[in-house]
Design a protein around this nucleic acid. Structure first.
Lengths: 217, 217, 217, 217
DNA sequence: AATGAATGAGGATTCATTCAT
DNA sequence: TATGAATGAATCCTCATTCAT
């Protein structure tokens, strides 16, 4: 509707640069709203390009979103692998993984949403690349939990899938409460709380008294 | 040539019946898709009426959805109150409440979604009737948890809000996994698992060995 | 949308009473808004009857409006005729007619509008009963003006149709300004002003100094 | 079977041209019907474009109409200003202004209607650009009349607002009569008639006998 | 490589009108 | 006689997508 659109700048990027830019903007917008509320014209506007250019590089809006999600997951996994082997002990590894999940999901809650709600219900989801990526991501937590059960450090009276859902479900709820502006939340405190409850609730032996990770009052 | 439109039988119902029918259909559709994906013309089609009829009884699509959500909450609370006083002991009350939440949310997961995601972000949410209903619902769990902390039966090193999110977040995740057809889930097992983990993870004293509520293997 | 419509009262009127009531309500609504903004359901509501009943007595919304307009004109003419012969002298008769037009149009400005804007542009307008009525109404002013010209009391350098439009156009403008709440207006003052300007502007001889009908300052 | 839709020629125009075209068509339609009767789809059809294209350039139907009205007023004022200073004397300036109003309003009577009836009743009217434009327009006549009263050339026994309404009301009536095809009208004759009646009806001194501006018989 | 104009296919909402009871 | 339920036909507006340049 504006009479004179702002003059185009930064024209003529290489395809790779252009694709990166579009995905970056889209990712940011996904942090702000859900899939349905993302509008291609706004993506184009924010990139300073025309809508048509988006369709030069992406087959559809959905395709764009899927690729954004994949990229995101790949980043997560990359970061995650750096610390994978440095942390020892079930409890610490649990806390570390929860912490990382919280941190990463906090940065991109709508992306989580998109993957969890939109993509997973897609009939062809299981054959999508992102399916593998997502399994890898949540699989890490499951792996730790499974190992704990196998070594006897955890009881076996609660399914691992339930524990995993307590963790990720809690993370999401925290995120959304936070997003609605109904109070801040600390990644540290939440990671401590979740891992403590899970660990203490599942451990077979009394752990040594914990000195750190206490809520002050 | 398009098939001649299905001969609409002038289907006269009393307002109450019609309203009930519309709400029932909408409720069912809400189980299948989110708010954005619900289309008034489809609601009308499924009811075998015209769109205009919907607007005879509901001011807007949003109004319809809100009323569906309210009705749902009222049902929950009604059921819930029946057992409110019969159960004693923190652990049992926790399990009972989790069980009821699971049962009820399982029946209408998208409704939960709608309330949690769409309505809660509405600026006027806090002045809506459903706000009160929702608080009453989640408040029950919070009340039990708070009491446990106050009496010293629970530690105080984890915020109650985090515990509540673990419970409801887990419930939601279970639901969605179930909805996507990735496996059934037992309300009983999940209720046991959640309440056990929370209770054991938070209890200050070692409870007596529990004989019931075990997962066999 | 109301769940329980206010219980119907005053049922079972005779056709004539019912028709009168519907027309009265419609007339009142025409005073408030224009033709397009009149909604049959609101007419029915205000009458405390159902929309269907309206269609028992009137073929269409337009038919209803036309009959309201006719009724209105007939009333005007009836009142008007009472004074027709009692007033003597061009100037006084002019003032009297302008005064009456103002008074009557002020009471029903939207009706004027409806007749002037909606009906007159109807292709079949000239064959409608209201056409005759309307001509009779405006014709009175024209008659006085024509007579004044014929007797030489008025110049003949300005078409009577123009004078008539100055009068009725002014009346309408006054009405609308008033309706928009941009200030009250006095039927007396306006009638004096209009008739004075017209008379003085058209009279061939200097009239005797006027003692009455002066604006104080 | 319905005729296959006219093969829409992909008709590319520059934004300015397209906007001009849409406004021109709309303006013409406004000459034929009122605001309520203007239908976006018809505007689109007449332009040979789709409705969506209209909304590319105008935020809403109302926005379109307002901009048409503004454009129109600006044209009026531009023309008007050319002669503003050249004419001397109350009587001649009055005639000139009335003449211009007639000429301009005659070209776009429905636009006048739209501004007078629709926009003026808008709560935010006073803050709209067109409000200023409109005031400028009608203000010119008021200014001349006020000055005449102040200098004593006019009596002060009739409110200027009433005179202004006689002028504009008469203009509108003439226009509408003309539009309804009930006879042509001459801008010259009408301007002479109106200004003569007003002037002679209000002047304090007998003006010198006028030789020009007479209706021949 | 990039785009700007243009659009098809809906989507929510409104309202005069009908008809079985 | 009266009506309550129901609706068809618009009406404004939105947005992902296309294609000639």
């Amino acid at each position: 509707m504006p009479h004179s659109p702002p003059p185009r700048v930064r024209n003529r990027l290489s395809p790779d640069e252009r694709i990166s830019e579009i995905m970056a903007i889209t990712r940011q917008m996904l942090s702000e709203k859900g899939y349905e509320k993302i509008i291609t014209s706004e993506v184009a506007d924010r990139c300073g390009i025309s809508e048509a250019t988006i369709y030069k590089y992406f087959a559809s809006k959905r395709d764009l979103l899927v690729r954004v999600a994949e990229q995101w997951f790949e980043e997560i996994l990359a970061v995650d692998d750096q610390h994978a082997t440095t942390t020892k002990g079930i409890r610490d590894r649990l806390r570390r993984l929860v912490w990382e999940s919280l941190a990463v999901v906090r940065k991109e809650p709508s992306l989580t949403r998109f993957v969890l709600m939109e993509l997973r219900s897609d009939p062809s989801y299981r054959s999508m690349h992102i399916y593998t990526l997502n399994r890898k991501f949540t699989g890490k937590i499951s792996a730790v939990l499974n190992q704990a059960v196998k070594t006897g450090e955890f009881r076996n009276d609660v399914p691992v899938s339930l524990l995993r859902d307590m963790i990720f479900g809690c993370i999401e709820h925290q995120i959304w409460t936070f997003l609605r502006g109904e109070g801040d939340f600390s990644v540290d405190l939440a990671a401590d709380g979740i891992s403590n409850v899970i660990y203490r609730g599942m451990a077979t032996t009394r752990p040594a008294p914990e000195s750190q990770n206490q809520v002050s009052a």
